[in-house]
Amino acid sequence: MAKSNEPIPWSLFSAGGMLSAILLPILIVITGILVPFGFAPLESLGFDRVHAAVSGNLLVKLILFGFIFLSFFHWAHRFRFALVDMGLRKIKGLIGFACYGSALAGTVITAALLWRI
């Protein structure tokens, strides 16, 4: 039986899943409940304030980059196996290429966008 390279996508998948599970509920509470229902001032999510927090702050950029790119790979791995399990076993090579390729493209775009802020 061949040794598998699966630990690479799986570790990105599990890191992304862990981060999403921890951080997404916080984001939902802030952007979906606290601010819209007036528990926090609207300006706290204003463009100028958020832009100033990211712009020129390498640490914030790095954290955002890690969170976003790992989430992409979490999606890619899950979507790949969901499609394969739904019966597209015959084209699983193509599915893997498309899923991880999309995640990689998203990662590059994220890096470029963050760099420009």
């Binding site: 039986m1 061949a2 040794k3 598998s4 699966e6 799986w10 196996f81 399990d85």
Partner: peptide, 14 residues
């Protein structure tokens, strides 16, 4: 590990 860490082993599990 030869059986467990292979493609046919743990990595097929979703």
């Amino acid at each position: 590990q030869e059986a467990i860490a292979s493609h046919e082993g743990i990595w097929q599990c979703t």
